[in-house]
Structure formats: structure tokens, C-alpha cells
Computed example of a mutant assay.
Amino acid sequence: MTLATSPSFSPARIGAMVMRHWYVLRSSWPRLLELVYWPAVQMLTWGFLQVYVGQASGRVALAAGTFLGAVLLWDILFRGGLGFSISFLEEMWARNVGNLMMSPLRPAEFIASLAIMSVIRLVIGVVPVTLIAWPLFGFNLWSMGLPLAAFFANLILTSWALSLMVSGLILRNGLGAEGLAWTLMFILMPLCAVYYPVSIMPEWLQWAAWTMPPTYVFEGMRALLLDHQFRGDLMLISFVLNLLLFAVAVVVYLYLLERSRVAGSLLGSGE
């Protein structure tokens, strides 16, 4: 099939890209081990802290019970974005981006394949950790039921949007910008109220926190665990903000992709 006659959107091309990255992942046990290692370390550290603080009484003990939930949801956000970025960076490290851009692969198909690999990496890394937390600390993330699906959907959308913008910056500025793939989430972490409610922030900072879609997820998680109340309103606001953020991310990525083509930086993908 020639470029002129190839379909504008092809699931087959997406599948081919996913298989390419899957073969790379499954052929390297250090890559697979790394996916589980850091979430497990985080879970153990915060799990034992939760046990220690949980020996207190009253509201403090109840609040301690949210630590593991926050850690595991944070890993969905962080690992989802990192899984997206790492798959993209592997193309950069292999100096293969220029070849992909000259192939029939469309930008939307490339983005879709990175998103699918993000979910695959996330499942491999986070699901075993959630199962370990159950017998070890008595915390069952899956007991959240349907609200967990809302939490996951909003967090993964945020992670894709931010990682897509980072990918565009790396395309335009080269691998010198790859540090953003690891650091951007941590820069935003204090504003997302991962381990504490928004109400304890200074009032002038709270407005910034409420502009972040993950903030609504972590507030919703605390409402579910502490008050046994699912805040559908928070999830709806988060979803709307995520749609806006993702739309902006797509525009930014396509703009930076075009600028990198004009500047000729697709082939020169070094530092």
C-alpha cells in the first residue's frame, strides 16, 4: 500500500507500533523488573508509615489510612506518564523518530500506540503492587469498585496530556529536555494534594491546586476512604479539565512537531 492510498487512521499501524515496543519490553528482564521495583519500594515505605501513624487514635488514624491509597493512585499518574514518555524516548534513543515521520504512520496513530503502551507498562508495574498491599497492609485498592475506574480514567488522561507536551518539547529541543519526563510530575505533585487535603494549603495557593485535574481525584479518594462518599461532582470537573488539557496538549505537540520538521531536528535527535 502506498502512502497516497493508505487510510488516514489505521489500527493495524497502531498495533504494529505496540508490538514493536512490547517485543522490546518483554525481551529485557531488567526493564520488567524496573516497572515493579519502584512502585513496590514506595508502597512498602508508605505502608509501614501508615501502620506507624495508624497506631494513633481518632481522625489522625483515619487520615493515615489514606496514605496507601494516595501512593497507589499517584503511581497510576506518575507511571502512566512515564510509560508514555519512555516508549517515546526509546524511539529517540534509537534515532528512529525521523524514520517514523517519513513512514505512513500518522501522528494520531503514534500517540495512540504510546498511550496503549502506557497502560501495558502501568498494568505490569502497579497491579502486582496493589495485590501485595492487600495481605501485607490490609489495603485493597480494588475494593473501591467503580469509583476506582473514574480515578484511573482521570489520572491516566492527565498523565498522557502532560507526557504528550513533554514529548513535543523533546522533539523540538532534543534529548537535553528528556529530564522533564521524570521531573514534571514531581514539580506538580505539591499542587495536586496527593497526601494532604487542599484545605491545609495557603488560601492563595488553593486556587492553583484546583486548576489541576488530579487534585479532584485525590480529594475524591479521601472522601471515599474517610467519609465513604463518592464525589461524582469532583470526577466530572476533573474529566472536563482533562479534556481541555488533552486538547491543549495535542495542539502543542503538533505545533512542536511541525517546528521540529522546519528546524530539521527530527533527524538530529542528540543532546
Rank of each mutant, 00 (worst) to 15 (best):
W46H: 08
G47F: 08
V53P: 12
V53G: 06
G54L: 01
Q55D: 13
Q55I: 03
A56G: 15
S57A: 13
S57K: 12
G58M: 02
G58E: 02
G58H: 09
G58A: 02
V60Q: 10
L62P: 07
L62A: 11
L62H: 11
A63H: 14
A64Y: 08
G65Y: 01
G65W: 03
L68R: 09
L68E: 01
L68C: 02
L68K: 12
G69E: 00
A70R: 05
A70N: 08
L73T: 00
L73Y: 01
I76W: 10
I76T: 11
I76F: 10
L77C: 08
R79C: 11
G80S: 01
G81Q: 03
L82G: 08
L82K: 10
G83L: 01
G83W: 00
F84N: 00
F84R: 06
S85D: 06
I86Q: 12
I86G: 06
S87A: 13
S87V: 00
F88L: 03
F88W: 05
F88I: 02
L89V: 14
L89E: 13
E90H: 09
E91V: 09
E91Q: 11
E91S: 05
W93N: 15
W93V: 15
A94I: 10
R95K: 12
N96C: 01
N96T: 09
V97P: 15
N99L: 13
M101P: 14
M101L: 13
S103D: 02
S103K: 02
P104C: 05
P107G: 03
P107H: 00
E109M: 06
E109S: 07
I111E: 08
A112R: 04
S113L: 03
I116C: 12
M117F: 05
M117S: 09
M117A: 01
S118P: 03
V119C: 05
I120V: 15
L122R: 04
V123T: 13
I124Y: 01
G125W: 04
V127F: 13
V127L: 13
P128Y: 09
P128C: 02
T130S: 14
T130D: 06
T130H: 04
L131D: 06
I132Y: 12
P135S: 04
P135L: 03
L136E: 04
F137W: 10
G138V: 01
L141S: 10
L141A: 06
W142E: 01
W142K: 02
W142M: 07
S143P: 08
S143M: 07
S143C: 02
G145Y: 07
G145H: 04
L146A: 12
